[in-house]
Design a protein around this nucleic acid. Structure first.
Lengths: 161, 161
DNA sequence: TAGCGATCAATGCTCGCGCAAGCAAAGCTC
DNA sequence: GAGCTTTGCTTGCGCGAGCATTGATCGCTA
């Protein structure tokens, strides 16, 4: 807090309570549901899909492990192992960075791209069906804006308690 | 699909993409953030908090393990172990159900209630700061409604693919 | 240029979680 | 009421994820 006011512990009113319950349900159910869809339809976990996607969007299909970890919201250690697994399946190639000998370049292979292209429509359909299409088009702009405000608030963590 | 149309794999437009990205960030960041807050402020993981809350709201502060698992969105096996841990700390008591010898009643103790009451303001403040307060009051009704539509869509899983 | 702190990745470890199997009790059907 | 099925919980196990440590390298500064 920048001022000396009492921390906000006003109980949630009925409407806030409702919104909160659904938000909580959302962040429990959504990941599971989307992951299951992708698993069933393309035999691929979301973490893999996300990593491949970010690689496919990167210049030359190359990213460093740390950078990839940041974008996928995984820890560095986890990404090391994920990349190892992908490399074992020839979906990516690991190569010592030439410019920085500490770093490792992760390069998407043709096989990896193919695999991603196969999974893409499955995931897209899943996201549409489960999440996007249920949002009435007219409500979308407002919804996106509110959501963004929440994300920003989540982002500025660790001030006060 | 009930009709014979092609599955919806229309790529997301710009606005949908924006909303989707923030939703995805939300369900990654929100649980972490709220869990960290509660851990730091009350030394309690969210799963424990949720279990204790549901118990405190149940008649006589009693719930069966399976029922508790359903409400907290955990598997039965996980709940068995969680309840064991809570029982080890005397926050709950396990007792063979009298009406159904297969079942186990989980009963919130005075100590458990006390512990919950200590954690409550911490979590409330966390939820307010991170999530609820960033929502402009005027947008709340619409937001809640849209969110609920999404939850419903998430709920009716496993039709088509 | 020698040294020091910061950064990148790899590795060992632990934890949370679900699944599958097992067991006991309950319920159902003939 | 004997057997099959279902339900409720427990237990063994594996997987995904983060943390802490280590080692190599980089960059900055005296």
């Amino acid at each position: 807090m920048t001022d000396g006011s009492i921390p906000n512990t006003q109980p949630l009113d009925a409407l806030e309570e409702l919104a909160w319950r659904d938000l909580a349900r959302f962040f429990v159910l959504a990941p599971r549901c989307l992951d299951e869809d992708l698993q069933r339809g393309a035999n691929m976990p979301i973490s893999t899909y996300s990593a491949l996607t970010h690689l496919s969007e990167a210049p030359d299909h190359v990213l460093r492990i740390t950078e990839l970890a940041n974008r996928v919201y995984l820890s560095g250690s986890r990404m090391t192992r994920l990349v190892d697994a992908l490399a074992a399946d020839d979906l990516v190639v690991k190569r010592r960075s030439t410019s920085d000998a500490r770093g490792v370049d992760v390069i998407l292979t043709a096989k990896g791209l193919k695999r991603l292209q196969l999974a893409y429509p499955v995931h897209l359909h899943s996201v549409r069906t489960r999440v996007i299409d249920p949002i009435p088009r007219a409500s979308l702009p407002d919804f996106a804006e509110v959501l963004h405000a929440i994300i920003v608030a989540l982002g500025r963590e660790r001030e006060e308690l």
